[in-house]
Design a protein around this nucleic acid. Sequence first.
RNA 1: GCUGAAGUGGUGGAAUUGGUAGACACGUUGGACUUAAAAUCCAAUGGCCAUUAUGGCCGUGCGGGUUCAAGUCCCGCCUUCAGUACCA
Length: 997
Amino acid sequence: MRYNFNDIEKKWQKEWAKRGTFKASNSSDKPKYYVLDMFPYPSGAGLHVGHPLGYIASDIYARYKRHKGFNVLHPMGYDSFGLPAEQYAIQTGQHPAVTTEENIKTYRRQLDQIGFSFDWSREVRTSDPKYYKWTQWIFIQLFESWYNKDTDKAEAIETLIEKFETDGNTSVNAACDDDVVAFSAEEWTAFSSEQQQETLLKYRLTYLAETEVNWCPALGTVLANDEIVNGVSERGGHPVIRKKMTQWSMRISAYAERLLQGLDTIDWTDSLKESQRNWIGKSVGAAVSFNVKDHDATIEVFTTRPDTIFGVSFMTLAPEHELVSKITTEAQKAEVEAYVEATAKRSERDRMADVKTISGVFTGAYAEHPFTKEPIPIWIGDYVLASYGTGAVMAVPCGDQRDYDFAKHFNIPIPNIFDGLDISEEAFTSKENVKIGNSDFLNGLNFKKATKRVIYELEQLGQGEGKTNYRLRDAVFSRQRYWGEPFPVYYVNGMPQMIDEKHLPLTLPEVEKYLPTEEGEPPLGRAEVWAWDTQKNKVVSSSAVDNETIFPLELNTMPGWAGSSWYFFRYMEDAKRDETFASEEALKYWENVDLYIGGSEHATGHLLYARFWVKFLYDRGFVSIDEPFKKLINQGMILGTSAFVYKITRLHFSKDENDEFEFSMNFFSLNKKINHFISAGIEYNQKNLKELFIKSRPKTEKALELYERVKSDLDKYSIKAAIIPIHADVSMVNSSDELNIEDFKNWRIEFKDSIFITEEDGTFKVKRDVEKMSKSKYNVVNPDDIVADYGADSLRLYEMFLGPLEQYKPWNTAGITGVHSFLKKLWKLYNDDNGSKVTDNEPTKDNLKTLHKTIKKVEEDIENFSFNTSVSTFMIAVNELTAQKCSSRAILEPLLILISPYAPHIAEELWEQLGHTQSIATAPFPKFEEKYVIESTKNYPISFNGKMRFTLELPLDMSKEDIEKTVLAYEKTQEQLQGRTPKKVIVVPGKIVNIVG
RNA sequence: GCUGAAGUGGUGGAAUUGGUAGACACGUUGGACUUAAAAUCCAAUGGCCAUUAUGGCCGUGCGGGUUCAAGUCCCGCCUUCAGUACCA
């Protein structure tokens, strides 16, 4: 019987679906375990072999947990809103819903053939109205909430209104906008409805605010930093400017401290926690206000070094700072305006990354030092970012390197306020070993004491206070796109109103084009039916807007991270999805995700937003946990191995210093279009290049002259070829890096008549290089092909075998034969030409030893997510058992269970052959027994001065003293010592012997 | 720039607490089987030197250090990759 993987795999995939083998139950006696993958965006290109890496790992773990007796929830779905579908819609006019549906079908087919144990009955799609109904619902809850800093949690907005009605806002300790003004209860009641709404908006957890965005006027849209290259749009190369825009924001900053503290309670890698900590960016310091001379204005700054306040010699504002236009003097106006304009063209990332070029402009205005009352010049500089802190810094050049560089560059004084420290070369930035000097009442104090004192003095003056600042900014939640969740919002007199939840979902309207409108409104501005009728409670024609009962709807849509911030709860619910986002029973039963696997690129986006929403839902009592992902593992990326063919562009000839020249390849051929390619590795081969030269025919008289001259004296010249590498599709290259020349010629019309300089044996080699797998690099490997040629089990094993899960590693299809032949060997252990050869024979000692050391190793590996090493372990086990001619059921049956999480199809098939009628999926994991692997002797490495010279087999229970005696008496030891007496002998029982001397 | 991660044979990688560096594979070379190819099986395979089996020296990005012993720990560098707030 042969190992017919294609039939076996199809058979079991069908069988699992039919039997509902992997359906999770919401009530079970077994302990629960929730294994989740970050759900994919279904792109038009389908899956390549890099995508399933994490899914295979999580599937192995899920299957392992089933063997270990857990009720496992292992679902999958699609993050199906997103830009690519919209781009495609803009280009082709096809509705994103249609292309998304097609893409999902492809994904599903591809996922199915890899044999994942997903419970597909719980699938979610973020673009499904039944799903985004609840995304909209959560948005409404956020709108109807505020953050009470006293209770340190989100509360219903009604409790805030109550406070306003009884006390005004003076006693309210809330996370809110900076610009709230104090009002009394009476004032509150006297406010108009609009005033009240406007005030509440400053407190709500989602609110409208002016935010800076990258605006591209030509495209009429906002761009991600990513879509901007060198200050212009990636598509089309249009100019991009920073522009303020009213958008929905999420008050994630209210949760900064809890998001930080929560990290201590979850099992994530340190590097990932570190990224989040850094992103949240907590810093403790002081807020200080500086009065501006001759203006009724103050500049608010945050500083982590209030102790250095006497070292301030200038202030720097972000060019976008609102005070800039107010305080700039007539004389400086032109220069300042030019600088502001220039800055608007630079991206934030650009400004942050570029520390070498120092730029800035003096505004002509002065601030007043809070203590000395001395004037301080106010500058603007693009190293200060508007969105960071208050958008202004008090510059202390002696204590901050950027300030120092700025001061040096513009010849601003650098007062030294550190006792006994030299600052003539660079700033002293450490907080350690500081003694403040030259600073009035701070003289002689260290960092800690000076900070405390200065904050006290600032408070006395009413010009500052101690403050903790977070780098984390509120998250912009509006997108000027079509393919996203519509906001359940309409506007009455410019004030946002929520649509009642019983009328949800508010579904996306039809539009004739997916582009922004001519007026620069988002695509929803094109919808003809997009107004809210408050009487009929439904969407009606936009032309019907009368601002009395029919109002305009919000035109922005939600960002990609909206739907992905709560989808893990949706999977928990199976039956009551229409009534609730997830029922209380389901939420209670599954709690949170036990294991989450996904890419590290989500470290600060998705993973932070999801934690924020979960904490919010927890505060409001909708869920019972406040951290969604207990354990998290980042899988690395599988990279492509690109193939390059070398194209010769020029030949460079040299004889001596005075005789050097080049031929362009265009010189030679009669037809310009002929390309010359040279096999990789022989590009400097003189013989080949000279042959090429001789065979060529120059086109012009002048070239012919030169040609003849060189040809007659060719031996004396040395030739170098100038080459450019060109991507060739990896499917045209075999495992020995040889190019299929015919395929390559037919690939593109311009290669048709190319000339190929091959190796001696007629082959043409490509140069390999590792790059990201992508269509444009022609290095994409489709899992469909791998499954067809080698089977899903081989693909699964190979993806794991490639290396550690977290690591980035290149794909190389050639290597898959190794794991494939392993599966064939495994098959042969159970079958020969006449069918099954498994017997009921008693296992030998060796058989048991092999099995049990395999159980131990594999179990440890799975627990440590070291899947690559367990594949090696299986190979070793099968090699050993084959050599032992093992046919014993007592060995081969448990072996199948060990392998089944990795290669489930072949395991099920062999399991069935052994007479089982139940799936292997829930067979109990074999138990490791120490007694089968205990050794009585150890082959000790004997080292001399740390270098291993030979090994010596000794009993493991031999005492240290006896080992030393035996080793020293051994003849090879004496040979090594050559009469010397060892200074020292180190014996580590069970490990090593090292002789020093 | 900032933050995070990674550098070990021709290639992917192994060495889990400092204790035999290169497990397991790929590739390559040689051999068996075959009319031939594929498949399968066997052997060799870090580099250099020497050779009669035996051996010797070097070797985990670079430079130092700690230790009886360093891929592993410490200090200082170099290189590559990722994230950097509207790609998902």
